[in-house]
C-alpha cells in the first residue's frame, strides 16, 4: 500500500503542476464570468440559469482535466517508456494501476475543489444581485450535484485507464474515452426513445437489442446527473444517491480489475 501511495503522490504532483491546468482554470473562470454578466438577460429564471452554467462549467472543466491532463499522466508513461523505469522497481502491475488511478483521481478532486470555490463565489454573488430569483435554490442540493460531477469524472478516469492499458497510442485512448462518454450521456435518451414507441420510422429489433446490451455495458451517465434537480431545487431521494454511488463504485472496481488483467498480459517494448 505504501508503494501504491508513493506512485499516486508523484502522479498527483506531476498532474497538479501541469501548465494546461492554468488554461482549464482560465476557461472555467471565463464561463463563470460570463454567467455573472449574462445572468441579467434572463427575466425569470436567473437562479436556474446560474446553477446550470456553474455545474456545466464544472463538468466541462472536469472533462478537460480528464481528457488532457489525466490522459497525459497515464499515456505518457507508456508512450515515453517511463513505465519501464517504474517497473524496474518492485511495483506490481496491479499496484501501478491502482496508484495511477488514485493519483489521477486525487488530482481531479483537488483541481475541481479549486474550481468549486470560484463557483460558490459566483453563485453567492449572483444570488446577492438578484435575491428574488433564488427561491428554489438550496446549497445542499447544489453540492450534491457538484459531488456527482466528481463521480462522473471518477468513472471516466477509470475508463481512461482501462483504454490506456489496451491501446498503444494515447490518441486512441482519448478517442475511445470520449466516445464512451458521449454514448454514456446520450444512451438514456436513445434507449427511452426507442422504447417509447413514438417515432417516425420502425426501428429494427437488432438495433434495439444492441442498444439494450450497450446500456448494460456502458455506464449511464444520466444516473449521476443532478443538474436539473440543482437548478430547480428539487429534493434528491437518498435511494438515488445510494444507487448512484454504488453503481459508480462497482463499475470502477470492475474497470480497474480488467485494466490490471490486461496490463499483466501486456509487454512494454
Amino acid at each position: 500500500m505504501n508503494r501504491v501511495w508513493a506512485l499516486s503522490v508523484i502522479t498527483y504532483k506531476e498532474g497538479i503542476r501541469n501548465r494546461s491546468l492554468f488554461g482549464i482554470l482560465a476557461f472555467a473562470l471565463f464561463v463563470l464570468g460570463l454567467n455573472i454578466s449574462v445572468a441579467g438577460f434572463f427575466m425569470r429564471e436567473v437562479g436556474k440559469v446560474t446553477v446550470d452554467m456553474n455545474l456545466s462549467a464544472l463538468t466541462f472543466s472536469g472533462l478537460l482535466l480528464v481528457f488532457f491532463v489525466a490522459l497525459h499522466l497515464m499515456a505518457k508513461d507508456i508512450d515515453k517508456k517511463t513505465i519501464q523505469l517504474v517497473f524496474s522497481k518492485p511495483l506490481s502491475r496491479g499496484e501501478y494501476i491502482l496508484g495511477k488511478y488514485l493519483g489521477i483521481l486525487f488530482f481531479v478532486v483537488v483541481s475541481l475543489l479549486a474550481l468549486a470555490v470560484f463557483s460558490i463565489a459566483t453563485v453567492s454573488l449572483v444570488r446577492g444581485l438578484y435575491p428574488n430569483y433564488f427561491a428554489g435554490f438550496s446549497w445542499p442540493i447544489f453540492f450534491t450535484a457538484g459531488c456527482f460531477v466528481l463521480v462522473q469524472l471518477a468513472v471516466l478516469c477509470a475508463i481512461l485507464i482501462l483504454f490506456s492499458t489496451v491501446t498503444t497510442s494515447s490518441f486512441a485512448s482519448l478517442i475511445f474515452t470520449v466516445c464512451v462518454y458521449l454514448v454514456g450521456v446520450t444512451i438514456e435518451d436513445v434507449l427511452f426513445y426507442i422504447q417509447s414507441g413514438f417515432r417516425t420510422e420502425a426501428i429494427s429489433p437488432v438495433v434495439q437489442e444492441v442498444v439494450k446490451v450497450v446500456s448494460y455495458i456502458l455506464p449511464n451517465f444520466s444516473m449521476w446527473d443532478f443538474k436539473l434537480e440543482a437548478a430547480h431545487g428539487l429534493a434528491i431521494g437518498a435511494e438515488r444517491i445510494g444507487l448512484g454511488l454504488g453503481y459508480a463504485a462497482v463499475y470502477i472496481v470492475v474497470l480497474l480489475a480488467l485494466a490490471t488483467l490486461f496490463f499483466q498480459r501486456r509487454e512494454f517494448n
Partner: peptide, 27 residues
C-alpha cells in the same frame, strides 16, 4: 537497478521527489 536508454523521467517532478518515490517503492 535499471537505467534505460534515453530515460524519460517526469516533467514537472523534481529529482528529489522522484528519488523519494524510488526509495519508497523499493522499501
Amino acid at each position: 537497478g535499471y537505467l534505460p536508454e534515453n530515460p524519460y523521467l517526469y516533467d514537472y517532478l523534481t529529482l528529489e521527489e522522484l528519488l523519494q518515490f524510488c526509495g519508497r517503492v523499493s522499501g
